[in-house]
Structure formats: structure tokens, C-alpha cells
Nucleic acid binder design. Structure first.
Length: 595
RNA sequence: GCUCCGGUAGCUCAGUAGGAUAGAGCAACAGCCUUCUAAGCUGUGGGUCACAGGUUCGAAUCCUGUCCGGAGUACCA
């Protein structure tokens, strides 16, 4: 928030105390409820920068502000200085210039970066579940936020379309598919294929149980450990060998099934409003890493072990030793990522690269970045893993292989179905023509908001029965305020509007608070972008909407005492609407004119 | 074993450059629709901020230890 009186205070204090830390900017906070003031300056926080003690600095600040023309009242409590602004200054420095306000939600030109952001990265052996939804939602929201503050953002997806897990669903289809297709089964492609993955896993367990019963040495082994011993397990590995040797039947089946899955993903992405600038396929990129290592082998960071494996020593950064090529010369996971990282950099030459991947891979990315650094990649310090926590169910974590998952598409249907019911209930007499679209925007908005308002790094619990609410701290609550304002604007008789907005008529505390809240928007957005944290935006929007609802309840816009007052309140409403639209858009949530 | 992350109201979560009486929603209870959409507003109750020490004028926040939970620690991805 850029208040002239705070700017004045800053330069006054710098002048009085000589060279203060130039990084120091005094950022006012919202004055807590119960305290007298619009904003507050915490002198505990800034005292050190001015080489002064908090109390005397607060006194100094208070006496400066007391004489400032923008300040009508100052209250000093301990080292807090609570400021009540002159009404002209309050609106002048917040919402009177909306273009200026929104313009502050931007990083300096010198800090603008070309950012490559990779997210989603699904496997093509099963449909997406709630965990992927969190990833997709975070990814698209962070893309919006980062580009909104001025960065040049490129979104990429890396489809994991090869490997043993893909062969599992392929083998499942070969065994149980009976030449069916998504069309013949009347099923979405990714669900169709995922069904065979589950059937395969069931078969593994069945065969493993037989082994356990007949062979005492297998009795205490887990299903994972027994996998290579089962007939289907061995067949899946054989299928992988066939795939790698380019066996045409295997490749045909693989291509056919992947296409089914990808067309299913297209629908899911479309419904979420997720789009990528570029899609990479692991089947096409997984050999890059091997080439890079072989090329780099002369650099002493990689060395051949006695058993033939190629390794790198990361002991000095506490990451131990890491094999990058197996003794048979094939590459491991991190090797593939080395290759795709370099390839992505060649393709886009970004200043910075970001991966949105679950927190279980924190270690993997530390290793990846450390290897790239050791290889002497000059941009290796511009790589960031944005980890996010898992989404658990009240019963514990989701288990794809056992089918204990919250399916993305089903969840979308449930959310939008509930939104539809709620809409019909409200509009019983006149069913809106755009019912489907409304239900979609409200239901998806509720889901996305629920995921985004939680700090990304928090492991969260999703209770299907309790989470699907449209009241309280939810997306629809925010959307509702937008729609309420839209409704006011529809009913507004344009003839009552005055030519000029006289902001100083907005004297009510509820009006002042709304304006102050609006003023915080740029700082919030920059904070979210700087910390890759969507939750600050979501929680801010809730604060703003709560402030607006209190105003709305207490004061009428259309029936205000004078046309001048209506004009000013309409202007206030429009500002709120703009920020809500911008804020929600940055969370990839749409708004509605009526709901 | 080692490493990382977490433990805040009955539930789900905010709150870390140390700062004013620890916040919100849900759930519970009590009010508010002849007035711009009640997906709303107002109020009540509900807390040893896991535990124990330490640093500090001041700690949910920083340090140490303990307990509990999760993840990682592959020539898996």
C-alpha cells in the first residue's frame, strides 16, 4: 500500500537518522479491529533499521504523522502507531486511481523474468485423481499470478507415457480387454485404460497370494517384492523389453492406448481451464539424459564404478552418491530429468525454471539440481522445485492401485451437480437459461478455491462429505459478492449517477475498510508471486469480501440518501468488483453476473 | 538409523523478516429476509499454540531436547 503519509514518514526518518538501510520500506498493516485507526505502523519491526529503539521511534513517527496533512488522527500504543487518514487521502491513495493501483501489482522491469513452469506431468496408465487436481490447479494459478505481476510465463507438461506402469495397463488390456475400446465400452478413454491397470494389479495380487501359499520363502514378502516373481509381472517386464526394442505390435497397442488416455485428459484439462504452451512426451525425451551423460563422461564429475555403473559423488552437499547410468547403460529417473531440463532450456532459454511436483520428490530435485551444478551448468541456480503436500482422505492416503481414490472427473460432476441443485433451489420460479454454465463455474470454483486457499506445502485432508460446501470461506462466497455487485449495477438507474465521484462522501467505517482492503491487493499479489503461494490471494479475497458484505448489509447503494452518495458507493462497488475479478482470475476461477 | 516436513478450537485450516487481547470457516447454540440476491449478516460458547527447557523487554514464530504423525533415504518412477 502506497500511502503518501507513509512515504513522507519514511523520508523523514531517513533524514533524521542518517543513512538507514535502503532496503527498508515501511509497510503499514491493517489496523486490528477494536483499535482506532485505518492502518498501523509497527515500530518494533523498523526500529533496528533506523538505529533507534521502538518506543522513541514510535513517538517520533507519531509526532511527524500528527502534523501531516493526510492524517486526521494518530494514536500511539507502545511501539504501534495507529493512523486515521484524512478522508481525501484515504481514497486518493487507494481506489480513486484503480489503474494506478493495479499497476502497482507488478514487479520492477529489471526483475521481470522469462519463466518456464512445468506441472501436471501425468502418467498415461490411469485417470487423474484429486492429487492431480491440486497440482493442475496450483500450476495454472501460479502461471496466472506470475504472468500477472509481469513475468513472461511458459507452461509445459511432461507426459509420462512410458515405463513399467504403462506396460501394466497394456498387459491388463491384452489379458482382459477382449478388443474392446472406450467407444464400445461407453467410457472416457483414461478411465477405460485405468480399469485395466486396476485389473492388472488385482491379478498380481492373486498370483502373489498363490505364491505365498505354496512357497514358504515368499510368505512374508510384500506384493511389490513378489511382483517380479509373478507370471504377469514377468510378462509386463517382457512387454517393456518389447516396447524398448520397438516391437511394432507393442508400439501399436501402446500408441492406441495412450491416445485413449490423452483424449480423456484433454477433457479433464479443458474442464479445469488448464492449458499448456508445450507438451513433452517422456517416450521422446527419456534418452536425452543418457546422451548428455555420455557426452559429459569426460568431465570428471561422473565416474565409472567397478561394476560398470556410472555415478556422481554428491557427498559434499550431503546428498551421497547417485547412480546416473545403470551397469547395463540404461538411464534412471534423474538421468531423464537431466536430459529434459537441458532440452527445455535449449527450447525456451528461460531465466528461471519451475517444477510443480509433490513434496515426496523434494530429495529428487535436490539431487537433480546438485548434479546440474556439478556439471557446470551456469543456470543451475535458477531452478526451483515448488513442492506441494499430498491430499489425503479421512481414511488415509489415496491408493490408485487399489482404486481408493477421489477421481477427478467424478469429483467435478459431484461439485457441479451440487451447484446445480443449489441454483435450482434459489431460482425455483425462473430457472436460468445458463444453468449448466453457472453450475460449472460455481462447482469448479468451489473445488479450486478449496485447494488454493490452503498453503501449497500443507498436507491437506479432503473430506468429501464436509468439503463440498458453498457457504463460508469458499469460492462461491467470493463469487457471490461479485454477483451481488453485478446485480446492483444492473438495477442502477444511470440517470442518478453524477458526473464526478466525490469519494469524501464515503465516511462510514465499513466503506473505509473496504477501500483500505482494496489498497492491499498489489502487495498481496506480489507476495503470492514471490513465494509461489496461492493461499495468500485466496485468503485476501475472503477478507475483502467479508469487508464488503458488512458494508453491503449496513448501507444501501441504490437507496443512498443522495445521488452523490449513490455515485460514490457505485464507484466503490466497481473497484471491489475489479479486484475480485482480477483476484479470482489469478486463481483460475471464473466470475458470474448472476448466481 | 539418517534427512526433510508437520503437530494451533470438536473438524478443516490461517497466522514464521519475534510484537497489541492467538484468527477464520465448518459444526453447536441464539438472533436477522415488507429494504440493492439469506450462497448473506449479527452474537454466544469453544485454545496448556504437542511437551520440556533456553535466548529475549517480548516466543505459536528463533535454538536445544523429548514425544507423536507423514514423507524421503534404489542400478523404482
Amino acid at each position: 500500500m502506497n500511502l503518501a503519509c507513509i512515504d513522507g514518514l519514511t523520508s523523514h526518518l531517513i533524514q533524521a537518522h542518517g543513512a538507514a538501510d535502503l532496503e527498508t520500506t515501511i509497510t503499514p498493516d491493517l489496523c486490528p479491529p477494536g483499535m482506532c485507526g485505518d492502518v498501523t505502523v509497527n515500530c518494533f519491526r523498523i526500529a533496528k533499521a533506523f538505529g533507534s529503539n521502538p518506543m522513541s521511534l514510535a513517538q517520533e513517527a507519531a509526532s511527524y504523522l500528527d502534523t501531516h496533512p493526510d492524517v486526521s488522527q494518530v494514536e500511539q500504543i507502545k511501539a504501534f502507531v495507529n493512523i486515521t487518514l484524512e478522508i481525501s487521502a484515504l481514497y486518493r491513495d487507494t481506489i480513486a486511481d484503480m489503474d494506478g493501483l493495479l499497476g502497482k501489482a507488478s514487479v520492477p522491469v529489471s526483475s521481470k523474468k522469462r519463466i518456464l513452469i512445468e506441472y501436471s506431468a501425468p502418467n498415461t496408465n490411469k485417470p487423474q485423481h484429486l492429487g492431480h487436481v491440486r497440482n493442475n490447479t496450483l500450476g495454472s494459478a501460479l502461471c496466472s499470478i506470475l504472468s500477472s505481476v509481469g513475468h513472461d510465463v511458459t507452461a509445459v507438461n511432461l507426459i509420462n507415457d512410458r515405463g513399467i506402469h504403462i506396460c501394466k495397463s497394456m498387459l491388463g488390456y491384452q489379458r482382459f480387454g477382449d478388443d474392446s475400446s472406450p467407444e464400445s465400452a461407453g467410457e472416457k478413454g483414461d478411465h477405460f485404460v485405468g480399469g485395466f491397470y486396476v485389473l492388472f494389479e488385482k491379478e498380481v495380487r492373486r498370483q502373489a497370494d498363490v505364491l505365498k501359499a505354496s512357497r514358504p520363502e515368499f510368505k512374508d514378502l510384500s506384493y511389490d517384492e513378489l511382483f517380479p516373481e509373478t507370471e504377469v509381472g514377468q510378462s509386463a517386464q517382457e512387454l517393456l523389453r518389447l516396447w524398448e526394442s520397438n516391437d511394432s505390435d507393442t508400439r501399436d497397442l501402446w500408441q492406441k492406448m495412450n491416445n485413449w488416455v490423452l483424449s480423456g485428459f484433454d477433457e479433464t484439462y479443458k474442464r479445469m481451464g488448464v492449458a499448456f504452451d508445450r507438451v513433452y512426451f517422456e517416450s521422446a525425451t527419456y534418452e536425452f539424459g543418457k546422451e548428455v551423460i555420455n557426452r559429459t563422461l569426460k568431465i570428471p564429475v561422473f565416474y565409472r564404478r567397478d561394476d560398470g555403473a556410472t555415478e556422481i559423488d554428491l557427498d559434499d552437499v550431503n546428498l551421497g552418491k547417485k547412480v546416473v547410468l545403470r551397469s547395463d547403460g540404461t538411464s534412471v529417473y534423474v538421468t531423464q530429468d537431466i536430459g529434459t531440463t537441458i532440452r527445455k532450456h535449449e527450447d525456451f532459454a528461460p531465466d528461471s525454471m519451475i517444477w510443480i511436483v509433490g513434496d515426496e520428490q523434494i530429495h529428487h530435485f535436490k539431487v537433480l539440481f546438485a548434479i546440474l551444478a556439478k556439471m557446470g551448468i551456469p543456470w543451475s541456480d535458477q531452478l526451483h522445485h515448488i513442492p506441494y503436500g499430498m491430499v489425503n482422505l479421512p481414511s488415509g492416503r489415496m491408493k490408485s492401485r487399489e482404486g481408493i481414490v477421489v477421481d477427478a472427473d467424478e469429483l467435478f460432476d459431484e461439485m457441479t451437480g451440487l451447484a446445480r441443485e443449489a441454483t435450482l433451489e434459489r431460482w425455483a420460479d425462473e430457472v436460468p437459461a445458463d444453468l449448466d454454465e453457472r453450475s460449472e463455474i460455481i462447482g469448479m470454483g468451489a473445488l479450486k478455491f478449496m485447494l488454493l486457499k490452503v498453503n501449497p506445502k500443507t498436507t491437506m485432508t479432503f473430506d468429501p462429505n464436509a468439503s463440498m460446501k458453498f457457504e463460508g470461506d469458499t469460492g462461491p462466497y467470493v463469487q457471490y459478492v461479485y454477483a451481488r455487485i453485478a446485480s446492483i449495477l444492473r438495477k442502477l438507474d444511470a440517470n442518478v449517477l453524477q458526473v464526478d465521484t466525490d469519494w469524501s462522501l464515503l465516511k462510514e467505517p465499513e466503506e473505509r475498510l473496504v477501500a483500505i482492503q482494496c489498497g492491499f491487493y498489489p502487495a498481496i499479489l506480489l507476495n503470492a508471486a514471490g513465494n509461489f503461494d496461492t493461499s495468500v490471494v485466496a485468503n485476501y479475497l475472503l477478507d475483502l469480501t467479508k469487508a464488503f458484505n458488512r458494508f453491503y448489509k449496513k448501507h444501501s447503494v441504490l437507496s443512498a440518501a443522495t445521488n452523490e452518495l449513490t455515485t460514490a458507493r457505485v464507484a466503490l462497488c466497481r473497484c471491489v468488483q475489479t479486484i475480485l475479478r482480477e483476484g479470482l482470475r489469478n486463481l483460475s476461477i471464473q466470475t458470474l453476473e448472476s448466481m
